[in-house]
Nucleic acid binder design. Sequence first.
RNA 1: UGGGGCGUCGACAAACGGCAAGUCAGGAGAUUUUGGAUCUCCCAUUUGGAGGUUCGAAUCCUCCCGCCCCAGCCA
Length: 570
Amino acid sequence: MKDNELKSGDLQEPGLPSHFIREIVTEDLKAGKNNGAVVTRFPPEPNGYLHLGHAKSICLNFGLAEEFKGRCHLRFDDTNPTKEEVEYIDSIKEDVRWLGFDWGDHLYFASDYFGKLYEYAVQLIKKGKAYVCSLSAAEMREYRGTLTEPGKESPYRNRPVEENLDLFERMKAGEFEEGTHVLRAKIDMTSGNLNMRDPVMFRILKAEHHRTGNAWCIYPMYDYAHCVSDSVEGITHSICTLEFEDHRPLYDWFLDELEVACHPQQIEFARLNLSYTVMSKRKFLKLVGEGHVSGWDDPRMPTLSGIRRRGYTPSSIRNFCERIGVAKRNSFVDFALLEHCIREELNRTAPRFMAVLRPLKVVILNYPEGQTEELSAVNNPEDASMGSRMVPFSRVLYIEEEDFQENPPKQFFRLAPGREVRLRYAYFITCVHVVKDETTGRITELHCTYDPATRGGDAPDNRKVKATLHWVSAQHAVDAEVRLYDHLFASPNPADEKECPDFLGCLNPKSLEVLPSAKIEPGLARAAKGERFQFERQGYFCVDPVDSTEGHPVFNRIVSLKDSYAKIKK
RNA sequence: UGGGGCGUCGACAAACGGCAAGUCAGGAGAUUUUGGAUCUCCCAUUUGGAGGUUCGAAUCCUCCCGCCCCAGCCA
């Protein structure tokens, strides 16, 4: 292979896998197909919010266009006015933009082509390849046959062309009621592929369309509208999910019969399945409708609006979509991979702070009362250019409740009676006394001593401690609400009927834990909505864009830090 | 029982007849002022199964097994 030849995968980051669609496109280019053009499209129906599965498709379509210097259209597949609403259009656009993609001037609607679709249908009728069928929906189902038995031809199948033309025009004129007539393609009622058994092309729907208003009362079906829309827009590669595989012969049939100039190639890939979540509009609707989550943008939802609010970055999602690959095998991606992608990015980019989620009061007995000092803390050990900050220290502090145990097990390295640990960037302290509530026995306070010689966290005599704790000075701390999010479902596969007969039964009761009075470092108080941080030793957090206010900061946990102690505990 | 797809590590996923990549997860160790990060090593003598072709098979052929999708006037 010559050096200047385009190899599949040349344009991707090294180390990332190529995939069969990238290869097809590369081969097509090499063969000189489509005059070297690569035109893809992302065709959502505006009837719901986008989720991670759509992100896979968006990254694929827009990514391919970017990679091969082509273009990608955003086209709303709005052929069913009874299910679609304008409100979704804006959210879909926002999500695509948020992911980092730009359709430029190429925003389209299938409804833009209603006129053309009508004319093409007339063409087909004239060719004797389409007819008006007056069977009822129930009759049509009967005539269709079953998976194993062939269908029967409709008694209307051989209506004369003139009659079809007349009827179709009157359907369009609104002379008939819904359900009385449809326009069907005349293909083959005995085909093993049910999609080819004279599929419906147009149905009567006396519904107002969000863009065309009441101009139409017949609306095209997906199979007919989609291939024609693709063709009109000059799409070269029409990428869709596996369930449309047996629609491909129909896609090709329409374009062949219509003798259009552009005949895009439909390519199917497997949709994304993710562990510990669900990815269906119907289930989302139920979760939102029944109040199991706060809304479509609940940070536990796999909707793009949800993960955005949770604090995931667009680049982490794009990276995830690249890593999961594109193939035809039904796959089930481990949620841990998504978490890995966001941790990897935020480790490099998120400034570190100390925040005590479940505060336990610590009094440093030998630290002068009323004294305060500022200690220097590194903002990001992975990136020196992020500098450092000063953190106030004083006699009364908060540490994490779980960082102290009165009777520590063997593997517990943190604070315990008589034990010395380091307070990050501050001093070594030793626990000398445990104060308990006399009635409940609950530990309310720890008394410790500090070693002034260890200022900053290093001991001049080189003695070691086994743990470093994060902390916050009580008089300087700011109160915050912290929301700890976990998998929405407790089961790895809530969509599996056997595992979860009713998917709601598999909801994770601990998917949200609200900590109303966490104590955060004062420097964190002015954080802007959407800003992301690492709370040292805890995880990555983001200021909730909806509920956080200046007087009441709210932080969402995006993802926890990996915790090897948690594994030891188990 | 019709048609269309798909079977490679726990999970993704390469390999296009010439010694089964990589990533996540998992394990061991080093290092560490985050039990984080980083680094090193381990983790498929075998590709759903059985035959066959070939010097050579995950790749080609045959049969079998398993899983997914399709009977909307939804997309």
